[in-house]
């Protein structure tokens, strides 16, 4: 009987064997070939109003982000250094946590991460998932391992339930990374006055701020701080036009920038150009947190990066413009 069925199925299958050789990709779908869309007139684009994320993963990611349980000594959370109500950083030159080695770099913001081309001051990471290993393992941050964290989380019935509701495989390095990365993807700050202005609301920013924007472009800041994130899309040496570190002296390991990643001499003091989104609330400034005020930072930039001085008035115009880049997180303007 079984054999008879088999023979029947074979027959059906044979009947279905029509030639299928003509299945080629049609080369007509090359929509990707359209030319670049930017025009010379708008070197800064507004941030999208939202990004698509999985709300459940984001909620789980937020719990992990805020939970000191993950750190090796149970005392730090991601939010210890990355305050989400403020600029996504910690407002200090360099953080130094209890029983941890002091940080050698200023804490950067975690806002608008997805629009950066690389992560960290030296641009050592291209993907957020890979970057997560740094806070987890660094002796300056959590000083722990993923295995350790997974073990701790598995000790909590609450976390076990929360994970298995989303991931059939439960708590693993991969699922925990996925939840945090999904959260990080959701860290965007749309609706800055400048974005509203770009979207056509002419009254969103003042005349002085518009003048500041014009100066930002004409003075050349735009050649490095550009694109959607007003930065975060290239590397530049600090001191392009005038040696910065020669004048400052005392070069520490944090000052080497990209050299720490590539070990190439030409990458000494080269940094990812930071995003200037929300810059008014992310002081102190620069990789070493050495500059307290935005005015001073703008001065340094014009001296060392542009090699052309700015008057006091020009500086304050630019600073006023930079103030229009402060956006909203979850509907609240960053402080």
């Amino acid at each position: 009987m079984r054999a008879r069925t088999l023979a029947f199925v074979c027959g059906l299958w044979l009947a279905g064997c029509v030639d299928e050789t003509s299945d080629q990709a049609s080369p007509s779908q090359l929509d990707l070939l359209r030319p670049g869309t930017a025009t010379i007139d708008d070197p800064i684009e507004p941030l999208p109003l939202s990004v698509e994320v999985d709300a459940r993963k984001v909620a789980l990611g937020q719990r992990l982000f805020d939970d000191p349980l993950l750190s090796g000594n149970g005392k730090q959370a991601c939010s210890t250094c990355h305050h989400l109500a403020n600029g996504g950083d910690d407002g200090r030159p360099k953080s130094h946590q209890e029983d941890r080695q002091p940080a050698i770099l200023n804490t950067p913001t975690v806002f608008n991460l997805v629009f950066n081309f690389k992560y960290h001051w030296g641009g050592g990471y291209s993907e957020l998932a890979a970057q997560l290993a740094v806070p987890v393992e660094s002796p300056r941050v959590y000083a722990t391992t993923f295995d350790e964290i997974v073990k701790k989380l598995q000790g909590s019935a609450d976390y076990r339930r929360a994970f298995s509701a989303i991931y059939p495989e439960g708590i693993t390095k991969e699922t925990l990374t996925d939840a945090i990365v999904e959260l990080e993807r959701s860290f965007i700050t749309p609706n800055a006055p400048f974005d509203k202005f770009m979207r056509g609301d002419d009254s969103a920013i003042s005349e002085r701020q518009k003048a500041g924007y014009a100066l930002f472009k004409s003075h050349g800041c735009i050649s490095c701080h550009q694109g959607m994130n007003v930065g975060g899309n290239m590397f530049q040496k600090l001191g392009v036009m005038r040696e910065f570190f020669e004048e400052r002296g005392e070069v520490g390991p944090g000052d080497l920038g990209r050299y720490n990643v590539t070990k190439r001499d030409e990458d000494r003091h080269v940094f990812r150009v930071p995003s200037l989104r929300n810059v008014a609330v992310t002081g102190p400034y620069f990789h070493d947190g050495s500059v307290e005020t935005l005015e001073e930072a703008v001065q340094v930039m014009s001296e060392y990066q542009l090699g052309r001085p700015l008057t006091k008035e020009q500086v304050s115009l630019i600073v006023e413009f930079l103030g229009t880049l402060t956006g909203e997180y979850q509907g609240k303007v960053l402080q």
Partner: peptide, 14 residues
């Protein structure tokens, strides 16, 4: 000098 920013290049690379 015809392009205002590098975002397109960055996106294409990614």
């Amino acid at each position: 000098g015809l392009v205002a920013h590098y975002d397109e290049i960055v996106r294409a690379r990614a």
